[in-house]
């Protein structure tokens, strides 16, 4: 490694960073190690971001205002605003149930994404974190938002089918 670099050398190059964000790498969840004693401090936060963003994008895909979604889902406008914007307040189970109905997403999966139930499906967890990291906040759904949304909804719909067949496999094993 070169050792001839003085303070000026480093400072000149550091100046290039001004105004730039710096970072690189995959957005996937890290594998969990059994002996990791330090919990993921912001995973719940990430889940809430994904949930709020999912509801917002699904609403905008339908071309609805917040008021229209609240009316369709029989919720208060305030409830919808809290879900989309306020990560500090967990959603009410009834609100998640109504939104699952309106957007035709399996309720069991939306409950996991909302953080109200313990995540069982590691793939869904992975995809939730990815979706939260990828989605952006612009007025119209951009092409990349569309893609992110379609992929996530597809995972949400698939997860039920796979976990249902896992449960029936377990049932038949238990019965044999």
């Amino acid at each position: 490694m070169a050792t001839h670099r003085d303070e000026t050398w480093w400072k000149t190059r550091a100046q290039r960073e001004e105004g730039h964000y710096i970072g690189a790498g995959s957005l996937a969840l890290d594998p969990q190690f059994a002996d990791t004693s330090r919990p993921q401090l912001v995973e719940r936060e990430q889940t809430r971001v994904a949930f709020g963003k999912l509801i917002e994008l699904m609403r905008r895909r339908k071309g609805w205002t917040v008021e229209e979604l609240a009316s369709e889902a029989d919720l208060d406008i305030g409830d919808v605003l809290l879900i989309e914007d306020d990560l500090a307040v967990p959603p009410e189970p009834r609100a998640v149930y109504q939104l699952a109905k309106v957007f035709e997403i399996p309720q069991i999966n939306l409950m996991q994404v909302s953080g109200l139930t313990v995540p069982r499906d590691p793939n869904l967890r992975q995809e939730t974190v990815r979706f939260a990291a990828r989605s952006q906040s612009v007025e119209k759904l951009s092409q990349s938002e569309h893609l992110a949304l379609e992929q996530f909804v597809s995972v949400l719909s698939r997860a039920t089918i796979e976990s249902a067949s896992d449960q029936s496999d377990t049932a038949s094993t238990n019965n044999s």
Partner: peptide, 25 residues
Amino acid sequence: LRVIGVPRARWPQTTHWNWESKTKQ
């Protein structure tokens, strides 16, 4: 960022990164 209403597009994307896992791996 939440309090001052910064759009999520400008939030850090790496909040879920776990350097302990990345190292152990």
